[in-house]
Write a protein that binds this DNA or RNA. Structure first.
Lengths: 235, 235
DNA sequence: AATGCCATCATTGGATCCATTGATCCGACT
DNA sequence: AGTCGGATCAATGGATCCAATGATGGCATT
């Protein structure tokens, strides 16, 4: 261990530790957030190169905050960095995507269990409205936005510091493949998803959390199985 | 969206993307790994300050790779960075630790399901041996090392790119509290854990994956419930 | 004497410059 | 003609320097 001599002084110090607030660098965080939004909204495709200099120029900054931003995005799994070579938008294999969905199947019901008791009647009404809007969604981007809004609203009652952000990262990592898959289908043609959403809202209205968890599990699982039938979407 | 004009050129480019290998910076990665080991082995305690300059001096490098290393550790949840202020070893609240354990309860059985079919008779024999060694473990550090080795061996058959690393991060984030909790107990006094480990190995030997998953779930859950009875370990 | 304000200082964030690594292209050799 | 090897070039990794922010201590004032 190389960090021995300072350790005891440090452990003794325990200076006023922050409240867990992960507020971060000014420029680097701004760049990371903008890039994240760009990636999630489909501006970049998996496999495309991210040149530090180009990004630095876009944000009118030096390459240094860009490097730190890329590091953050790598942590989110959105970017893949190879030493001395460069950064690329992460490209998931079918196997990796499958794992992510299986994690979601098991973790999101837990988040729902945290959230459900705090959902208000207004939230439930809004959920019903979102289902209707999705049934009438014309284009893919609207559909995706509403779908995310729907599920995030079901989770909005959860006051969690780990679970919520974890689920959000899982959603972000698979966002591109959700878009690609949605494009394959006629958004209004696939009515199963709307039925599932309705069942979920109904269970939440009855405060039947176990049934809600089951429906959510099945919803994610069915999506995964359908996704697995389209290996052409992957590398 | 600020990154529009280069997007189309980038999406078209799709230059040879790397194989998902997250190999990384030479110095920054070395620093990150060393710091990670130091944190996990208990050299630093939660809440202790990490000064960039001190670390840079320890590793005979400039502050720049240290900053990137801290960023990586922040991504792992081991370090908390506050803008313009500094970095601290992450301090989990009881609620956060509880969430992590609940995630583990649901995710680790899935990883076990991936691993079980690939476990060899030699692996199973080694697992039995580890249980015996744990029963005779004299000190806390040995106990912790064997416990980690045992569980990681049960997962060693899993060829996963997402799940495995995810579980490892969950273990790392809670390592300090596992140590603190273990110290409270007489390592040899608590025989429940050894019974659970034996049940797990037995189920794996019978290739009864469902029972193995149940035992593992209960094992993690029981640990969580006992941990929750010791709020004095947290901030 | 206690408290609030101000100045100094320590520490982090960012920019520029240099070193190093990896990729591409051309030429020579088989 | 094809392939292997080397040289050039582009892009990343790291070091040093400068700016800005937060913290600490002393001083004055009430």
């Amino acid at each position: 261990m190389t960090a021995t001599e300072t350790a005891d002084t440090e452990t003794a110090a325990t200076e006023a530790a922050p409240a867990t607030g992960t507020r971060d660098g000014i420029a680097s965080q701004r760049i990371a957030n903008s890039l994240r939004d760009a990636i999630l909204s489909g501006v970049y495709s998996p496999g495309s190169r991210l040149r530090q200099e180009d990004i630095a120029e876009q944000f009118d900054a030096s390459r240094l905050p860009v490097r730190e931003a890329l590091r953050s995005l790598q942590a989110d799994g959105l970017v893949t960095i190879v030493a001395n070579t460069g950064a690329w938008i992460s490209r998931l294999s079918l196997a990796e995507c499958r794992e992510m969905y299986q994690i979601r199947e098991r973790v999101e019901p837990l988040l729902l269990k945290y959230s459900q008791p705090m959902l208000t009647p207004a939230d439930l009404a809004h959920l019903e409205s979102l289902v209707h809007q999705m049934e009438n969604a014309a284009d893919v981007e609207t559909f995706l936005r509403l779908d995310r809004e729907f599920h995030m609203l079901t989770y909005s009652g959860a006051d969690t510091l780990i679970l919520g952000p974890t689920v959000e990262r899982l959603w972000n990592s698979t966002q591109h493949y959700r878009r690609a898959f949605t494009k394959l289908q006629n958004p209004r043609g696939n009515s199963v998803i709307h039925h599932e959403h309705n069942l979920l809202v109904a269970a939440l209205q009855r405060t039947d959390i176990e049934e809600a968890e089951r429906v959510l599990f099945g919803h994610i699982r069915r999506t995964r199985l359908e996704l697995e039938r389209h290996p052409e979407l992957f590398a």
